[in-house]
Amino acid sequence: MPRLQDLEPAPKLEHAEYKQLLRQWQHDLLSLQQTALRAGARMIVNIEGMDAAGKGGAIRRMVARLDPRGYKVYRIGAPEPWEDERHYLYRFWTRLPRPGELVIFDRSWYGRVLVERVEGFASKEEWQRAYREINEFERMLVDDGVILKSLWFHINPDEQLRRFESRLADPFKAWKMTDEDWRNRSRWDDYIQAAEDMFEQTDTNHGPWSIINANEKRYARLAAIRAVTNALVEAADPDQRPARLHMPEF
């Protein structure tokens, strides 16, 4: 069943309201991070989504108030030659969180069934097999005690074009734009189909997806922090949860 076309509109948030909510949610996430550090918990957050959907900005807000000793962010691009000689999951095995650590993957092992599928870097047999491999990998992580959350940031084609043009007009952001961005945009429908197939095959109880309408950046940033915070709350021992959390609605 398609999911992206049925997303609810993202609400607009005024600057003052957004700032207040952001502080509260960041405080909650910090409190839970400190609880997790004491308890030796481990968490992985996978960040995926369309180009220019605001993934990097959301990650920056997510970690802004966290203890830097307790998290790592890995930006996953094309594999190095020595990585390409190994199984595609190898470079994630070597970056798994240690006790008390949150690891955020900016792009993740789902690249196997997204960009590698669409751009032909993986054969049809390889990316079709990857659904099972990913599910088994995630099941193994969760069985070993890892808290796992995957987030998809989604924008519509018109908003993506507006952000592309905005970047090109800003000398401090123009560097973000490459020919690859425009090529990916030309294959929009292929990426949407790949994403829908990915949700269908890999949205499981142990590895759930949260799809975030990112047409409004402020809302998307808050929604991402909320999803991670909620996952930590659900996984935490009730006796070890922070005494006071805000967790406001928006």
Rank of each mutant, 00 (worst) to 15 (best):
Lys176His: 14
Leu21Lys: 12
Ala174Phe: 14
Arg95His: 04
Arg244Asn: 07
Asp239Leu: 11
Leu245Gly: 12
Met43Glu: 10
Pro248Glu: 14
Pro171Ile: 09
Asp106Gln: 06
Phe164Tyr: 14
Val73Thr: 04
Asp51Glu: 09
Arg95Met: 04
Ile225Val: 06
Trp25Phe: 08
Pro208Arg: 00
Arg86Asp: 13
Arg162Asp: 10
Leu21Thr: 05
Lys217Trp: 00
Arg112Leu: 03
Met1Tyr: 06
Phe164Leu: 12
Gly100Asn: 02
Asp239Ala: 11
Leu7Tyr: 02
Gln5Cys: 11
Asp143Leu: 10
Leu30Asn: 10
Leu32Ala: 06
Ala52Pro: 13
Ala10Pro: 00
Ala64His: 14
Leu7Trp: 01
Glu159Asn: 11
Thr94Tyr: 05
Arg75Phe: 12
Gln193Val: 07
Ala39Asn: 09
Arg129Lys: 14
Ala52Leu: 15
Pro68Phe: 14
Trp188Lys: 10
Glu8Thr: 00
Ala41Gln: 08
Arg241Leu: 12
Arg167Pro: 12
His87Ile: 05
His87Asp: 13
Trp25Val: 03
Lys217Arg: 00
Val73Gly: 10
Glu80Tyr: 04
Ala243Val: 05
Val142Met: 03
His206Trp: 13
Arg69His: 02
Ala220Leu: 05
Arg129Ile: 11
Glu200Ile: 00
Leu232Ala: 06
Pro97Val: 01
Arg117His: 00
Glu85Phe: 01
Gly77Asn: 14
Arg244Thr: 08
Pro171Cys: 08
Asp84Leu: 02
Gln201Val: 13
Lys12His: 06
